[in-house]
Deep mutational scan, measured.
Amino acid sequence: TEDEKKIQELLKRANGDVSKAEKLAQSQGNEELARRLREYANK
């Protein structure tokens, strides 16, 4: 999905570090994506 692409892109930029990727999403003002990242990471 589009969200998964965004999540994978963020994870790439954060070198696979979920908490960093989450902070990136939040810094972009994207709380929804940050929440999805957390769920994605907890799979």
Rank of each mutant, 00 (worst) to 15 (best):
Lys20Asp: 04
Gln28Arg: 05
Asn42Cys: 14
Lys43Gly: 08
Ile7Phe: 09
Glu39Ile: 05
Asn15Met: 07
Asp3Ser: 08
Arg35Gly: 05
Gly16Phe: 11
Glu4Arg: 09
Gly16Thr: 01
Glu22Asp: 02
Gln8Asp: 05
Leu24Tyr: 09
Leu10His: 02
Arg35Thr: 06
Asp3Trp: 15
Gln28Lys: 04
Glu32Asp: 11
Gln28Ala: 11
Asp17Phe: 04
Asp17Cys: 10
Ser19Arg: 14
Leu11Gln: 00
Ser27Lys: 10
Lys20Gln: 10
Ile7Met: 12
Ala21Asn: 00
Ile7Thr: 02
Glu2Cys: 14
Tyr40Ala: 03
Asp17Thr: 02
Asn42Trp: 09
Asp3Leu: 15
Gln26Arg: 15
Tyr40Cys: 06
Tyr40Ile: 07
Lys5Asn: 08
Lys5Phe: 11
Glu39Ala: 08
Val18Ala: 07
Ala14Thr: 12
Asn15Asp: 09
Ser27Cys: 15
Glu32Ser: 08
Thr1Ala: 13
Glu4His: 09
Leu10Cys: 07
Glu31Gly: 07
Ala21His: 00
Gly29Glu: 04
Glu39Arg: 05
Ala14Arg: 01
Glu32Cys: 10
Lys23Trp: 12
Lys43Ser: 11
Gln26Asp: 04
Glu39Lys: 04
Ala14Asp: 00
Asp3Val: 14
Leu37His: 00
Ala34Trp: 05
Asn15Thr: 02
Lys12Gln: 10
Glu4Ile: 14
Glu4Lys: 07
Val18Cys: 07
Ala21Val: 02
Asn30Asp: 15
Glu31Asn: 09
Ser19Thr: 11
Ile7Pro: 01
Glu22Thr: 09
Ile7Gln: 02
Leu24Phe: 07
Leu11Met: 06
Lys5Trp: 14
Glu9Gly: 05
Ala14Val: 10
Gln26Trp: 12
Arg38Leu: 05
Arg38Trp: 05
Lys20Arg: 11
Thr1Phe: 13
Gln8Phe: 13
Ser27Thr: 08
Ala41Ile: 13
Val18Leu: 09
Glu2Trp: 14
Lys12Gly: 05
Glu39His: 05
Ala34Asp: 00
Gly29Pro: 02
Ala41Ser: 07
Ala25Asn: 00
Glu39Met: 06
Ile7Gly: 01
Asn30Gly: 15
Tyr40Phe: 08
Asn30Ser: 07
Tyr40Gln: 04
Lys20Ser: 06
Asn42Arg: 13
Val18Tyr: 14
Tyr40Val: 03
Ala21Ile: 03
Arg35Glu: 06
Leu11Cys: 12
Leu24Val: 04
Asn42Tyr: 11
Leu37Asp: 00
Ile7Lys: 01
Lys5Thr: 09
Lys6His: 09
Arg36Gly: 02
Leu11Arg: 01
Glu22Tyr: 13
Ala34His: 01
Arg13Leu: 14
Asp3His: 08
Leu11Pro: 00
Gln8Ala: 11
Asp17Pro: 01
Glu2Lys: 07
Asn30Tyr: 13
Ser19Asn: 12
Leu10Ile: 08
Glu9Ser: 06
Tyr40Thr: 02
Glu32Ala: 09
Val18Thr: 05
Gly29His: 05
Glu22Phe: 11
Glu32Asn: 07
Lys43Pro: 06
Ala25Thr: 01
Ser19Leu: 13
Asp17Val: 05
Ala25Arg: 02
Gln28Phe: 09
Asn15Trp: 07
Glu31Ala: 11
Gln8Val: 12
Arg36Phe: 06
Tyr40Leu: 11
Ile7Cys: 08
Lys6Arg: 11
Glu31Thr: 11
Lys20Ile: 14
Arg35Ile: 08
Lys20Leu: 15
Glu32Met: 08
Lys43Gln: 12
Asp3Thr: 12
Asn30Glu: 11
Lys12Met: 12
Lys43Asn: 10
Gly16Pro: 00
Val18His: 05
Ala41Gly: 07
Lys20Trp: 10
Arg38Met: 04
Asp3Gly: 06
Leu10Thr: 02
Lys12Asn: 09
Asn15Ile: 02
Leu11Asp: 00
Lys6Cys: 14
Leu37Trp: 01
Lys23Gln: 13
Thr1Arg: 11
Glu31Leu: 13
Leu37Cys: 03
Gln28Gly: 06
Asn15Tyr: 07
Asp17Tyr: 03
Asn42Thr: 12
Leu24Gly: 01
Ala25Gly: 01
Glu9Met: 09
Asp17Arg: 03
Asn30Pro: 01
Glu2Ile: 13
Leu33Gln: 01
Ala41Met: 14
Ser27Leu: 14
Asn42Leu: 12
Asn42Met: 13
Leu24Lys: 03
Glu22Ser: 09
Ala34Met: 07
Arg13Gln: 14
Ala14Glu: 02
Lys43Tyr: 11
Ala41Phe: 13
Lys43Val: 09
Gly29Arg: 03
Lys43Thr: 12
Ala41Leu: 13
Arg13Phe: 09
Gln28Asn: 07
Arg38Asp: 00
Lys43Ile: 10
Gly16Ala: 02
Asp17Glu: 03
Ser27His: 08
Lys6Val: 13
Gln26Lys: 12
Arg35Lys: 12
Gly16Cys: 14
Asp17Gly: 01
Arg38Thr: 03
Leu11Glu: 00
Glu32His: 08
Ser19Lys: 13
Lys43His: 09
Leu24Ser: 03
Gln28Trp: 12
Leu24Thr: 04
Ser19Phe: 12
Leu33His: 01
Tyr40Lys: 03
Asn15Lys: 10
Glu39Pro: 00
Glu32Ile: 06
Ala21Trp: 02
Lys23Leu: 11
Ala25Glu: 01
Leu33Tyr: 03
Thr1Asn: 12
Ser27Ala: 14
Arg13Val: 09
Ala41Tyr: 13
Asn30His: 09
Gly29Ser: 03
Lys12Glu: 08
Ala14Leu: 05
Asn30Thr: 04
Ala25Met: 03
Glu31Ser: 10
Asp17His: 03
Lys23Thr: 07
Ile7Leu: 13
Lys6Trp: 14
Gln26Met: 15
Glu31Lys: 07
Gln26Cys: 15
Leu24Glu: 07
Leu24Cys: 06
Lys12Tyr: 09
Ala25Leu: 10
Glu22Val: 15
Glu32Gly: 07
Lys5Leu: 12
Glu9Thr: 05
Leu10Asp: 00
Gly29Cys: 06
Ser27Gly: 08
Lys20Met: 13
Leu37Tyr: 01
Leu10Gly: 00
Lys12Thr: 08
Asn30Trp: 15
Lys6Ile: 14
Glu2Asn: 10
Tyr40Ser: 03
Asp3Arg: 06
Asp3Met: 15
Ala34Ser: 04
